[in-house]
């Protein structure tokens, strides 16, 4: 697997969430994603970016373009140094929310991606990695 590009952007405010959507869309277009695949990864990015801002107290997004033979992919890594998630299983459940969303953020984002990974330590932050392939 090769990494074709590697960019980082800050994630502090809800305006940054909009910028993240635009950046992820541009990356997905450049990687040759179909319209539906673009929409899925942008939507997943929007869900997780909002979590990073609202619950993680802001952080950073890393956008990587991947290539594995004929297939091309986009990998997104959201990291914050917020309070962390105490019970990941509970947070991944549909309908679970501590804020004002529909509780579909993490579980929904997982359904929209091919790869999903979450690591969290109480007190020192959360890292969510997602990837989608053509």
């Amino acid at each position: 697997m090769q990494i074709e590009s590697d960019d980082r952007m800050p994630l502090r405010t809800s305006d940054d969430v909009v910028r993240v959507r635009q950046a992820v869309r541009a990356r997905a277009v450049a990687s040759g994603f179909s319209l539906v695949d673009q929409t899925k990864i942008v939507t997943a990015a929007s869900e997780i970016a909002r979590n990073t801002v609202d619950y993680g107290g802001g952080g950073e997004l890393r956008i990587e373009a991947l290539r594995n033979g004929q297939r091309r992919g986009v990998r997104l890594t959201f990291s914050d140094s917020g309070p962390g998630i105490r019970d990941i299983d509970q947070a991944m459940r549909d309908g679970y929310t501590t804020g004002n969303g529909l509780g579909l953020g993490l579980s929904g984002a997982k359904r929209l991606c091919n790869e999903f990974d979450i690591k969290s330590t109480a007190g020192s932050g959360t890292t969510v990695t997602i990837a989608r392939w053509t």
Binding site: L35, V36, Q38, K40, E47, D94, L104, A109, R111, L112
Partner: peptide, 13 residues
């Protein structure tokens, strides 16, 4: 849009 509808269904909304 169709792509939005498909994504919403997958999202579970």
């Amino acid at each position: 849009r169709p792509a939005v509808a498909i994504t919403l269904v997958e999202l579970g909304l």
